[in-house]
């Protein structure tokens, strides 16, 4: 039982990171019906900005986190303006291929500056508490609580604010949105800023939990977060959160109770089965078809 609880805690930690990244995929899909395949690499850039802020600027945790989030948000907005916006009327596959290209660019750009893996300094004083045989570290607490706080804020923004309302309207039919007096480009930029900065927050926390980082670290994590978004129902914000925790949970539990080489195989197999029964994901609905 304690072993199970211990693993549950680990699952929460990994799941909250997947969930934060999955939100970026799902938000962009929600408004542009496009998969931003560069998102995993923006997560990686977030980790590297954390490394730079902590190592060279010697910043403590909170400023490091904010700098990473702000830097990646700017990058995300710039990428949308330069690479995706000209393709808004083009077939979606063009935008997706462009996104893959942007991702490769980010990987190789980082590789130029960092040909070797880097070690991220510990920004959070490591303390561990043991409660009923389950040990929990200060880092785990921060990752889980911070992720949940960010998700609650996002949920409130989307449900309660005018900007959130505009985002939801865009996801329904963006051709009508300008007729409401709402500046479409501004809302799309805000969406990219929020989605990518959540990815950067995940990158920062991930690089504190697993402190060796390299330019390719975003690929596998990005795929897993993307799958989380699909499992939750792509385009659905709460779905992305749920999907992230499910994937984190399945992965940790498979690794805990089966040979660890089975991890990805069993985890993805289970998710495939889930999608057979719920093809639009857990909270997803078929998109309304415009006539």
């Amino acid at each position: 039982m304690t072993y199970f609880l211990q693993q549950l805690l680990n699952a929460m930690q990994l799941g909250s990171i997947y969930a934060l990244i999955a939100l970026g995929y799902t938000m962009v899909y929600g408004i542009l019906t496009m998969i931003n395949f560069a998102h995993g690499d923006l997560f990686m850039v977030g980790a590297f900005l954390c490394f730079i802020a902590a190592t060279f600027l010697k910043l403590p945790f909170v400023p490091t986190l904010l700098l990473s989030m702000a830097g990646v948000a700017l990058l995300g907005v710039a990428i949308e303006r330069v690479a995706y916006k000209p393709l808004r009327q083009a077939p979606r596959v063009s935008a997706v291929i462009t996104a893959l290209g942007v991702g490769l660019f980010l990987e190789n750009f980082t590789l130029v500056f960092s040909p070797y893996p880097q070690h991220v300094p510990a920004l959070i004083a490591n303390r561990t508490w043991t409660i009923g045989g389950v040990s929990i570290s200060s880092l785990q607490i921060i990752i889980i609580l911070l992720s949940i706080a960010l998700m609650i804020i996002l949920d409130l923004v989307v449900r309660r604010t005018m900007v959130g309302m505009a985002m939801r309207a865009i996801s329904w039919d963006k051709s009508i949105v300008p007729l409401m007096g709402v500046p479409l480009d501004l809302i799309i930029s805000i969406t990219f800023a929020i989605g990518t900065s959540l990815g950067a927050a995940a990158g920062t926390m991930y690089s504190l939990a697993f402190p060796v980082i390299d330019p390719y670290m975003g690929i596998l994590v990005g795929w897993k977060a993307f799958i989380s978004a699909v499992v939750g129902g792509i385009g659905n914000i709460r779905g992305a959160m749920i999907g992230g925790f499910i994937l984190g949970g399945v992965e940790i539990m498979v690794a805990a109770f089966m040979p660890s080489t089975y991890r990805d195989f069993v985890a993805f197999g289970l998710l495939l089965i889930l999608l057979i029964f719920r093809p639009y994901g857990i909270l997803g609905k078929p998109r309304p078809q415009k006539v």
């Binding site: 005018m162 505009a166 939801r168 309207a169 329904w172 039919d173 007096g181 709402v182």
Partner: peptide, 15 residues
């Protein structure tokens, strides 16, 4: 906007 309430549809137009 089918995914917004009546009130929200009205509110959005006051942007």
């Amino acid at each position: 906007f089918g995914n917004l309430t009546v009130q929200e549809n009205l509110k959005l137009a006051t942007w």
